[in-house]
Write a protein that binds this DNA or RNA. Structure first.
Lengths: 150, 150
DNA sequence: TTTGAAAGAGCCTGTTA
DNA sequence: TAACAGGCTCTTTCAAA
């Protein structure tokens, strides 16, 4: 059940990835199908969770979160259960959590207002998950959230 | 010009981050303003590029890109000009490019169909940018693309 | 799975406060 | 800035092929 996407669905997904507010009328023109057919396909893609929702792309500086960082996590107690994502889920500064192969167990993508905010966040994370951390500060973001190849 | 966002604009941005297809009618109800006032504010947020666009959130497995990885880049020639993001921009497998502090200069977030796809991508990246790479494979993604704190 | 039609809901402009 | 009112577009459902 991986990567099985018809050409028309692919085109729809591509369009909605580039512009999530594209109207059904516009989509219909671009993929060469009637409005109601497109409508039905979009609904089906949403139900199948190929499309998991829609978001505004925000300028993190403009919304008061100019400092981005990657935080890598390593367990302190090797016997502790691996429920780190759940332990950290309530912390809103964490935008994403990846389980990774390598020296660390998880990588978090976080956004904070300032260096002090990062310091506080690291304390919160260590406390909540009992992990040691390694932080990589993002200096600038040439690009982000680009649409997939398809 | 950083983090200056009125409470109502904040609320609008929060709503559109959670659901980018929220209608103006719905937004108006939730932020307690008339439809046309909300409409005006959203347009202004778009013009100011606080809102930089809208996207469908896609299931990367379902669209045929089940393998995610972080690729860290270090220049090979220390005298070469630092134009790596531009050199890599044309590669569609690269979803994001971050300039970072630390042992490496950049971190890329990439998505590919398979391990072979990753191998080919690494070759392309090394060729295009003349960099050495360090790859961290993502095993699973507990969460991703969550709405910001605000 | 597609289409076309029809009703309702929502978008968006111009105007007024 | 915000509200209102209009004309118009888009969304959504239906019956039919």
């Amino acid at each position: 059940m991986t990567g099985e996407l018809e050409p028309i669905d692919k085109a729809i997904v591509r369009e909605l990835s580039a512009d999530g507010r594209r109207s059904f009328t516009e989509l219909a023109e671009r993929v060469g199908l009637s409005v109601s057919a497109v409508h039905q396909r979009v609904r089906r893609l949403e139900q199948r969770e190929v499309i998991r929702g829609y978001s505004a792309r925000l300028d993190s500086e403009a919304i008061g979160l100019p400092l981005t960082a990657f935080i890598s996590l390593a367990p302190i107690d090797p016997a502790a259960p691996d429920d780190y994502p759940q332990r950290l889920e309530h912390i809103p500064e964490i935008e994403a959590c990846y389980s990774v192969a390598g020296d660390y167990s998880y990588v978090l993508l976080v956004r904070v207002p300032s260096p002090v905010g990062l310091e506080e966040l690291l304390r919160k994370i260590r406390e909540a998950a009992k992990v040691s951390t390694r932080t990589t500060v993002v200096l600038s973001t040439p690009y982000e959230g680009r649409s997939p190849a398809l």
